[in-house]
Amino acid sequence: MMSNLFSTFDPSTNILNLSMNWISTLMGLLMIPMTFWFIPSRFMMIWINLIITLHMEFKTLLGSFNQKGSTFIFISLFSLILFNNFMGLFPYIYTSSSHMSMTLTLALPLWLSFMIFGWINHTQHMFAHLVPQGTPPILMPFMVCIETISNMIRPGTLAVRLAANMIAGHLLLTLLGNTGPMMNSMLLSILIIIQMLLLILEFAVSIIQSYVFAILSTLYSSEVI
């Protein structure tokens, strides 16, 4: 049963030895018709307002060191994760954001680039971050170790948080769905209602997790400048 359960998250499913699951990651390019760019539809106007709201919020978080276009990378990151989370809500479509190979690929290069930029251009500022203000002298060596470890595990926590939240909801939906054939009509109707409520919850989790990933990435970048 466990092998069948986790086969939902198996990226090795293929057709004629060609892996098809990861195609869902790139399907967003096919779902943006050119008419959205020439004649703004209602969908596009909602999306533009959302992007403007995110831009203003990211700009506030970046502070006085904000440069023109610096929020675009975080808005693009939010859009990519949001789309892939939504794709996983459709039946028989692979959720790429539920795998560490996808989430760690997003988190690790981003964090590494921030660290390289900070240590090369703002070395004293980075050293100052290792000892919080007001720390007693006797605790400074311990605080340096704690801050260094907490800084190094940031990409891992970003990746695990996104992957674990996406896997947890889908596993719960799968487990409840597998009990359906063994139920009578009364319990089956209750199960369908519960599944619909869980699907709405997963819809909210998809938005929240993409927002959290983008916000934390913005906060990490604001600490190195």
Score class of each variant (00 low, 15 high):
1 M>P: 07
4 N>W: 01
5 L>A: 07
5 L>D: 06
6 F>G: 00
12 S>P: 03
14 N>A: 15
20 M>Y: 14
22 W>K: 08
25 T>N: 09
26 L>W: 15
31 M>R: 15
33 P>N: 06
33 P>G: 03
34 M>P: 05
34 M>F: 11
39 I>Y: 06
42 R>N: 14
47 W>R: 14
47 W>N: 15
51 I>H: 05
52 I>T: 09
52 I>L: 12
52 I>Q: 06
55 H>Y: 03
56 M>K: 12
59 K>W: 10
68 K>W: 08
69 G>V: 10
71 T>I: 02
72 F>R: 13
82 L>Y: 10
87 M>R: 06
89 L>I: 06
89 L>M: 15
91 P>H: 07
92 Y>S: 06
93 I>E: 00
93 I>V: 15
94 Y>T: 00
95 T>F: 01
100 M>L: 15
101 S>W: 01
102 M>C: 13
106 L>M: 14
106 L>D: 04
108 L>C: 02
109 P>I: 03
111 W>T: 02
113 S>C: 08
114 F>L: 04
120 I>F: 09
122 H>F: 12
131 V>G: 03
132 P>C: 08
139 L>H: 09
143 M>C: 04
143 M>I: 07
147 E>G: 02
150 S>K: 14
152 M>P: 00
158 L>Y: 10
159 A>V: 05
161 R>W: 06
169 G>M: 05
172 L>M: 12
173 L>E: 03
177 G>H: 07
177 G>Q: 12
182 M>T: 13
188 L>C: 03
188 L>R: 04
189 S>N: 09
190 I>H: 06
191 L>G: 01
198 L>M: 11
200 I>S: 03
201 L>Q: 12
204 A>L: 14
209 Q>N: 04
213 F>M: 05
220 Y>E: 08
220 Y>L: 10
222 S>Q: 12
224 V>N: 01
